[in-house]
Simulated scan of single mutants.
Amino acid sequence: MTLASVLLGFGPDGPALRTGQRLPVETMVLGRPVPEVAELLPRLFNLCRVAQGLAAQLALGLPATGDLRTEIIRDHVIRLTVILPRAFGLTAPALPADPAELLGRNGLPADGDLCRWDSPLTPLACRITQEFAPGIACTAPLPPPPHPLAEGAYENSAAGRQAGAPTLRAVESRYGRGPLWRFVGLLADLEAALADRLPAPVAAEGLACVPAARGAYGLRLNSCEGRVTGIARRTPTDHLLAPGGALLQALGRLPADQRHLAPRIIALHDPCVPVLIEEPQDA
């Protein structure tokens, strides 16, 4: 089953996530012809359609088509110039003619000082820095998934993919793996995508792992006599929302008097399903 929504509540023991409605993906694909499933899977989801379609093709042994790099660049640009500025109450900058403009005239600053950075996104970087002091809404370093279908809390994100980049390391050293680290991770991943340095898709024995805008997407599809007989999916959001995962860790390190900033934390972590914040109930 695949999540369609998640409910977030703050209780006496801290933040908690409750799964909402689920999509019966398994019942939609099991028993269907292989080519039909390869076409159907990306249509079931609004996000990362190229990644989902390519993973299905690779898992089923079909010819792989689709421009992953273009999809990731487009998704990063929209998030950086539209979604995140709006989440932080800022005027969105104009969409750049060249996405590299977002990285600054001289590229990302190796020392992590983004308030002196020459980019259309400098106001957003400064706002994040002002709202979240070092150590606030941070996560402990989590390992990457050891297997594409591994369950549990792992760092499967754009920031995790680029954790070794100089700017990310400088930001982590000063602020921790917090909101600014997530933001810079998106920039570093955009830089890697523009330079065609993203990990390559891999597939073997019905299992595919494909880079997507939010991290690595794992998909296993079993088939027999031309029909799909089994499916297993693992998305970056599965790792993000797991118990002890990055989102709960970050929200758990958000002081009670700053919980109104929770939507901004969620926007920076970027789950692929809506996270609805429950209003506290009166006693």
Rank of each mutant, 00 (worst) to 15 (best):
L251C: 03
L198R: 13
R234C: 14
Q258S: 10
R227F: 11
R220L: 10
V275K: 00
L268H: 01
L247P: 08
A246I: 03
C272G: 06
R220D: 01
E172I: 12
P243R: 02
V171W: 01
A200D: 04
A213F: 03
C224H: 10
S223H: 12
L261A: 08
E278H: 00
D257S: 06
D189R: 11
A216Q: 15
T229H: 10
V202M: 08
A213E: 03
E205T: 01
G178N: 05
A165H: 15
A165K: 08
G185P: 09
L241H: 04
A212E: 14
A250W: 01
A213C: 10
A165V: 07
L180V: 11
A188W: 02
T237C: 10
L168S: 13
A208G: 06
C224A: 15
G230A: 14
S223C: 12
D238N: 14
R264T: 11
L194Y: 04
H260N: 09
T229Y: 13
E225Y: 11
P255E: 03
R234W: 02
L198P: 04
R169A: 15
D189M: 15
E205M: 07
L168Y: 05
P211E: 14
L221I: 11
E225S: 15
L241I: 04
D257V: 02
E205P: 00
I277E: 01
L261I: 13
A232Y: 00
L186A: 12
L198H: 06
L180N: 02
A195P: 07
L190T: 14
P166W: 10
D270H: 09
P243H: 07
A262K: 03
E191F: 05
R220C: 02
I266K: 01
G164M: 01
T229E: 14
E278F: 00
P236M: 11
L221W: 05
T229M: 14
H239C: 14
D257F: 07
P263S: 03
A213N: 04
P236F: 15
A204F: 00
D189K: 11
H239E: 13
G218R: 01
T235Q: 09
L240S: 06
T235P: 11
G164N: 13
A232E: 13
A216D: 13
R227V: 15
D270C: 05
D257I: 00
V171S: 07
Y217D: 10
G230P: 10
S173L: 15
A195K: 13
A262G: 08
L251I: 07
I265Q: 02
L219C: 09
D257A: 13
G244R: 01
A242H: 05
A267E: 00
R220P: 04
